[in-house]
Each structure stands twice: as C-alpha cells, then as structure tokens.
Design a protein around this nucleic acid. Structure first.
Lengths: 224, 224
DNA sequence: GGAACGAATTGACAAATATCAATAAATCTT
DNA sequence: AAGATTTATTGATATTTGTCAATTCGTTCC
C-alpha cells in the first residue's frame, strides 16, 4: 500500500520520532483491512506486531473457557498489543473487528527497538499504558462495587464518552458483547437496557442508542 | 539514613542506570519506616514520589465510597506509583502497610527525568507495568467468570505464589481485607475459608494459612 | 482483672442474578 | 421468497450472594 509520510495523522505519539525512526517504521508497516467479525489478534499467539487502528471498531477481550470478558472497544487512534511490550511474546488478549477495520500493523521488533533508543517515545507509550490502567481500575470498581443497573449505566457512559463520542450512536456490539462488556448474563443486560428504554433514560432501537437523560445515567452510575 | 551504593539490592531494574543516574537517585531518595496500618499513599493525592518496598507488606487498593477494592498486596521489590508516570500527577490508588514496612521514596521528577533519558530503564519500567496489567487481567477473569469458591481459591493461590511465596504463610490481611481482595462480602469470605478448612483443602488458624491440597485448590480455581 | 471495643463468626433471611425454556425477530442461504 | 440459522427477547424459576442481627472471640486500656 501507499507509503506513509505524515505520521502525525496516525498517532500524535509518533511525532516524537526522528526522521530515521519514521523511515524505519514506514519500511516495516503494513496496512490491512479486516472485515467485520474477523480476528485481528488471537490471545496466546505470538505477538509479532503492534497494531494501530485507523478506522473502525474492534473488541478487545480475554477468552476464558466458553465465555469472554470484553476489556474495551478499540477504535481510531488506539494501539493494540502494547501490553505485551517487554513482558511477553504473546498477546494477552484477543481482538476482533466488530465493524470493518483499517489498521496499520507495525513490526514489533522495530517498535521495541525504537522505544529502546528513543526515551521520549518510550514515555509516551508509557502514558498510553497507564491510561489503559486507569480505565481498568474504573472497570474494577464498576464490576465489584456496583449492581447490574450501575454497571449498564457505566457501560453506556463509556461507549458514549470514550468510544463513539456522541450521545447518539450506532453500536456494533451484539447484546451478548454488551453483556460480556459488563460482566453479566446476556438476558440481564437485555432486561436492564429495556428498562432504561422504558424509563426514557435511553432510546434504544436495535443497535442505535441515544442517551435521553445523561443526568439519570450519571446518577445510576453513582448510586451503583 | 545511610547512602545507598548498591542499587542492585533495591531492584534489578536499577542496575541499568548509569553512574550519574545512580548518584542522582541516591541524592533524591529517602528511607522510611511505616508502622502497620499507616497510610503510605493516598488515592487522589499528589504523586510526588515513586515508592519502593524494601521490607514488609502493604495493601494497594482503590477507594470507592465506604468500600475498598484491593488490587494487590505489595511487598519487597515492588514499586508503588508507577501507574501515574506520564499520565497523572495523582495516585490512582491508596496504599497502606499491613505489616511494618521499610520503603525507599524516590522523587518522582528525578525518576521521570531518568526514564526520559535512559530508554533501557524505561523499557524495564514498562515491563513492570505490563506485568501488573497481566495480573489485572487474571483478576478480571476471576471476578467475572468465577463464583465465590473459585475466587477464594484464586486469592489463596495468588497469596501463596506471588506474595508470601510459600505454601504456609502468616498473612496480615484481616478477613475484611481478604474479602475486599476477592470482591465479596466479609461473611461470604469467612464462610468459604472455613469450608476449605473443614474440607482439608487448607489449614487455617487465625491468620496462619497452610495449603494442604494444592491440587484441589487448582481444581477449584479451574472449575470457577 | 474486668470493661470496652472492634474483629470474627454464625444463622436466618432477603435480594440480586443466572439459568432454562419458549418464542420472536433478524439474518443468512440457496 | 422459503427455509435454516443465529440473535434477541420474555417469563418462570433456581441459585448465588449479600445483608442483618446475634454472638463469640481477642485486644486494648485503664
């Protein structure tokens, strides 16, 4: 595919690379398209690349027996695979596109090499890692301290604020995905979504969700 | 307190520092003792230092309303506060000693500065961060996919394998702490611990725990 | 040494949540 | 467009787990 010259379009953190480092990356990057439903990364498989999402949405999830736990919905601007850096040569999670995805796949050795020689870049990657960690901590609180209604509220707020960045969005998660994102049974998730819809907190038609009352959602999240 | 010359005694990752960097650290490090029950870090407070545990055990927990969620039991060799690096100027969690603790407190600006100039060191810190992340992922699975028995089994295995590094150990967690570590009510934790004791899976007397049947614990963890 | 306090324990019960089964709706196949 | 297959929904029920209250145990404090 076309050579990449303007790295700032990919990620702001790549702007701290030197000209040589940018060249190195552009020589070791592949642009790919994944159709909806395709597997981008497989947990436990060798993590030979760092993936960067240019367009589309993908679910990042941990597989455990027949059930998954969805960690996050990644989208434009997100890296995948950073958590294996300097720690493991395998992916700690699976990633599957839930909409057609355009990604850049960067050779991990190259990525690692650049981090090892460019400390500014390293600190920016660290910032991303810690941003993820702070999100995980919010998930822990949601999962352990809140009941179903609070968790669903948290999930909707997260999707609206962090993923789709709008109060009305067309989400590509199935009801099952939605449940796996909140750590509850599919039936419970459906029931509570319906309840929220009936109570005019959200308007839900199929996979189009609109937040009607942000105040109530925030209150539900707060009350747990 | 005495000046520190042999950094490898503190943490192996400090061995990648240059002589100058070591000097810089030794000039900006303070050795402190915390008595059991004292607060080492307070969530939301300014994270002006990186803390390193030389001796003792401390609980790392997220505060939420009246309840806490214990992320981990930190001990000799663990850093505290790395998750705020390049991301936040406040602590993302609280830390309290559950046994007398001897710690080294390093000025965060100095720490940050060294990371920004020493990419090898940066990558070692990244390795620690990702190690933590992998632990968090295990917690997610335990919390969302397992019932109380599986979660208690996981907690015991974690304490034995990662924290006290022995099949028999004197843990300094209260029953409430234990419950907050597994995300359940204190009463449930007590009941299941007692059940494990009665079933000769563990031997529990007060705060001395001995694993009798590692096989059964692993099976309980596996079954969830 | 006993009073006072908090931690640990136990039992009974209520609340929250999952499971199962039965449809209904949507999507894919041919 | 009909049939087949998956996904979504609903209701009834069982299971899991938390809550509350009562009691015991252990420690601290005069």
């Amino acid at each position: 595919m076309s050579k990449i010259n303007d790295f700032s379009k990919i990620s702001s953190c790549l702007s701290s690379l030197s000209t040589e480092e940018k060249k190195l990356i552009s020589e070791n990057i592949i642009e790919l398209k994944y159709k909806k439903g395709e597997n981008i990364c497989k947990q436990e498989s060798f993590s030979s690349c760092i993936v960067f999402i240019n367009k589309g949405f993908a679910k990042v999830y941990i597989e455990h027996k027949e059930k998954n736990f969805i960690l996050n919905i990644s989208h434009k601007g997100d890296f995948i695979g950073l958590s294996s850096l300097f720690y493991s040569n395998t992916f700690m999670y699976s990633v599957a596109s839930i909409e057609d995805c355009y990604i850049s796949s960067i050779n991990k050795n190259i990525f690692t090499q650049i981090i090892s020689q460019n400390a500014k870049f390293a600190s920016e990657i660290m910032s991303i890692l810690n941003n993820d960690t702070s999100m995980y901590f919010e998930r822990f609180i949601s999962l352990t301290q809140k009941q179903l209604h609070g968790r669903i509220a948290d999930a909707i707020l997260h999707l609206s604020n962090e993923v789709y960045k709008s109060v009305k969005f067309n989400f590509s998660l199935s009801r099952r995905d939605f449940a796996e994102f909140t750590g509850m049974s599919t039936e419970s998730a459906i029931r509570i979504l319906k309840e929220f819809h009936n109570d005019r907190i959200i308007n839900l038609e199929g996979k189009t969700m609109e937040i009607i009352s942000m105040e109530l959602l925030l209150k539900l999240s707060e009350l747990g």
